[in-house]
Design a protein around this nucleic acid. Sequence first.
RNA 1: GCCGAAGUGGUGGAAUUGGUAGACACGCUGGAUUCAAAAUCCAGUGCUAGCAAUAGCGUGCGGGUUCAAGUCCCGCCUUCGGUACCA
Length: 942
Amino acid sequence: MIDYSKIEEKWAHYWSEHKTYEVTEDLDKPKYYVLDMFPYPSGAGLHVGHPLGYIASDIFARHKRMNGYNVLHPMGFDAFGLPAEEYALETGIHPAVSTRQNMEQYRQQLSRLGFSFDWSREIYTSDPNYYKWTQWIFTQLFDHYYDLQNDKARPIASLVRRFETEGNLYVRAAGGEVPSFSAQEWKKMTAKSQDEVLMQYRLAYRKVGYVNWCEALGTVLANDQVKDGHSERGGHPVVQKAMTQWYLRITAYADRLLYDLDRVDWSHALKTMQSNWIGRSEGAKVWFDIDGLDEKIEIFTTRIDTIFGATYMVLAPEHDLVSQLTSPEQAGEVADYLAYVQSRSEIERMAEKKVTGVFIGAYAINPFSKVKIPIWIGEYVLKDYGTGAIMAVPSDDDRDRLFAEKFGLEIIDVVDKSDYPGTTLSEKVGKIINSDFLNGLEVKDAIKLASEKAEEWGIGKAVANYKMRDANFSRQRYWGEPFPIIYDKDNIPQALSLDELPVILPVTDDFKPTKAGQSPLGKLDSWVTLSNGYTRETDTMPAVAGSSWYYLRYMDPHNESTFASPQNISYWESVDLYIGGAEHAVAHLLYARFWHKFLFDLDLVPTVEPFKKLVNQGMIQGVIEFILLEKESNAPKVFVSADLAREGVEYIKIPVHINFVNDYGNPQSYLSLNGIRQFLNWRPAFKGAHFKTRNGVVNLELKQEVKFITVSEVGKMSKSKYNVINPDEVIDRYGTDCFRMYEMFLGPIEQAKPWDTNGIDGVSKFLRKFVDLFYDKNGNFAHSDQSPTPEELKVLHTCLKKVSYDIENFSFNTAVSAMMIAVNDLRKLQCNKREVLEAMVRMIAPFAPFISEELWHQLGQSGSVHLASYPIFDEQFLKEDTITYPICINGKKKDTLDIDASLNKSEIEALILHSPNIDKWTGSREIRKVIIVPGRMVNIVV
RNA sequence: GCCGAAGUGGUGGAAUUGGUAGACACGCUGGAUUCAAAAUCCAGUGCUAGCAAUAGCGUGCGGGUUCAAGUCCCGCCUUCGGUACCA
């Protein structure tokens, strides 16, 4: 009847020949922009988890198209990134080459899935025609500052003009601390000093940051490559090393990023995550004098009311003043502690419950109580949080209390919570005590008064603080966009102009960093040094650079004079629907929003937000299979069947490729004799090892039945876990339409679930039954032109209603169920009416694009079904005469009763009370109440 | 640690607004067809007891609100995602 591989080829060819999915900026139609999150083309190829979101967005896009929208649905690649470079280090294959191959593989795999992408708009971030504009946007960030008065980005040139006429006294801008200066003073500054001042204002600027430095590998490592303070590759120690790097001043946009969350249709969970990540808190900056030194320590606190309880201070170990403040007596201890902290990652510092710190031998003066208090350093204070220093109030903060208790520091109670039993320390309630002029005030009033006084006395200032930090934008790596920055002889950076872009990433075959840990580009002297003696920036940009604006490039992907023309941008505006993984919740989605807002400030985009509606797809997880190796065993190494594992014996879990395992994912999954042989061929290092099962050590030479039990876990599908399942195999066997519908049928799109093919036969059967409706017993295409019966129309329209609703609500699994029900019902009715079948074809088209196209043409239609209109359901066919009511006694269902649908509440109640079954239901107990929800249920309370 | 999410039969899941728990599908059991198998078709299938009618129990655990809770509230447990250089 229908040969799936043939029709897939046939219609894919037809669509590409007829440019079915290519779109232009058609002003006569309403537009709709459906976007998938940018894939990184990894070497493992596309696995069954990737298409989940793509299938969903494709169904949605096709549905919109059939409803008359001009749909932009593009695809491209986030092609710069670390894995390609790591691969190059291992194999010597240039990242450009492996990336090109990977993209080719992805493109092929994606095209098999029948997506309605407009491939004429494909982009990839490592294309110089693309990254020219990534670099250009960076130069714009470099050349702008954030004007707090007008709340928007403005050119740095206008700031310079202001400095020249009035200095910086009245400038209100986002940025670092700059001492005030006059116009005269500005003009007298050297170019270098002026540059340093401007760096405090630029939206792309340079400052010192910390990187994971691995001395043994001579390279900077990504967080991902560091485990427990050691490099994942080789297990060498990793330390935090200071380096001057580029940063983006995303904090300037913190408030807008926070408040504009109200304007987007995203899940509550996602908005909460972003809002918590931004972490705005209202409080005060306070300056503490240092005993015997003309310096101040700036702290941020949300609880200035507790300042009389501040009995010590803690600085981040990296705080600028630490070296200056450390006393000779404490120098040794401080140095030891700093070495310890250097080996600790930020996540360890935050997660650790262990309290550590040292006294640095200096004292500060509490500005309110004037008491001399000791200054400590401790890893729980992070340099980039707030000001990198805190006033510690052990009576009113859990961490400060633990610290004070451990080191025997003074604790003064300052908040009396006896009026608020059961409240925690972090709740802002209570009466202030032991605090001079604040005594007796409620916390909220005390905060207000203390801030006012601090401002009046010039020792503090009310401000908002953000947990979010500026984005580190430098990578000491090869495979990324070169910065469009050159340095003059004084090391003053300058942005290149548009006509000097793109700065092409030079070709090299040496991907090892320089001795000092700089990017491999640092070795290319002829590239780095320009003829006029200027030098290039050798760091490259991170992967977030290219993915922060790619959705705009799709609007006008081949434009050579601008990143996208104003006409095209004003037509497509922004993304209407964005589908992608929740793992991008804060990083990518915040950076893209930040860039978009910046471009909005420059009048380059018409909207303040890039992604109107966003749906998170769940991850399809894989099964990870392990076998147990006895830790102490050696020569021979001993593997033990999992059912023989004993307490008290240590085992190492060795991952096994799932293809070797029988019944993988099952508690009883095992390696057969053949599986063990495959494993040993794959991991020759284990040749000669013993495999113990219940029947003793397996003799690999003898032909026998072997069940060597493995350990199964659920986790990310990834190349490193040897559990990647390629969609190609599934498609070969079942066809694309079946694969698409099965992925949708697996469950709700947002939910994570492990992959298995257990239910795929059901979907396959459904498609066969669906096609069968069009054929007679002898396998001939046959349908009737008679009018459908009311019953047939009811089946059709019930289904249409459900499917239309479900597509709009991203409930594709239930849409598939509804279609299964309709096909089963039509089959029972032996319906082959053209009117019904044709509507069914159009209905299923977004889900099963190939079969529907084939049947559409077999029905004698011309043109693509995907450009036909989507069928609309009609309520008149759904009317019911009677409704089956559940009869509940005290909320438990006892019986059902068919009741005329036209009856109202009291008529139903009368009917129930006079029913011959009433005594049976109630057990002759007294009826206290009858609750009737018309159309729903009846509950009798006895 | 912190932020977010999830937990329902043997399995994937359904229950749209507090209103019939388990739709649809897999698997399993029995039957039809077949020399046999596959495929297909029909019937049954939450658990416990019972020949059955039926009764009791049942949405991670412990409480609560309600005529009625998978759904709302409080307190836990487990798993997953993120945690600022994987993308």
